[in-house]
Amino acid sequence: MSQTWIILGATSTIARSFARLASGRGDGVLLAGRDIDDMAATASDCAARGAPLAEVIAFDARNASSFKAILDQASGIEGTLSIAVFVGSMPTQDEIDADPSLISGTIVDNFTGPAEFLTMIAPLLEARGNGTIAGIGSVAGDRGRLGNYVYGAAKAGFHTYLSGLRNRMGRKGVHVMTVKPGTVDTAMTWGMDKLPFLAQPEKIAADILRGADRQKDTIYTPLIWWPVMTIIRLIPERVFKKLKI
């Protein structure tokens, strides 16, 4: 049966790769985000690559009144309905230290905005009894690091939310997957130096699609981050607090 993805944060570099890949195998895409013109270009691209449905719709994580229209459109989509959440923002820790009011926006973009949307749309998916919700978290959410612990905290909150959502939705046949990318070569990280195991967005997109097909609960992508983060999570806090990693 045909599958359609609602892609939240569709202007993200990784989301664009994901939308293309899904289109190439015949999935539909409903691109949701703030920059309508840019999403229209991606929609044309997706249609050329084979998406049977490629449309755009406004979505702002910081403005919950934008959610309803997406729900309305979603309820008219036939076949399997799935959702992939790429929304996120990462001010540097220095920017945040200089202006702590940035914290709430960071939490909304990475966690509470998407969580509110997913909570609203959950009954629709439960009623359909199928589909996937893929939430993009981050390895940064696995441990609070010196360099970006507000972003990390927001992602950790999102991870925990997704875990609970999985527990709920799994009972109704809806699969929830937590995606934890390592460092990815995107607009978000362009210009940062010395990023370990830097991956291309196409690789992350392929892992997300494969993970969704195989109904994985949590994936680290690229896979190297699974052993890396397993070790990092095992470091006792008494030692970790002195490290700069």
Partner: peptide, 14 residues
């Protein structure tokens, strides 16, 4: 030939 440059990598027209 090699060169040291500062590069931008825009992803959208704006």
């Amino acid at each position: 030939h090699t060169a040291n440059s500062a590069a931008a990598r825009p992803e959208r027209a704006t």
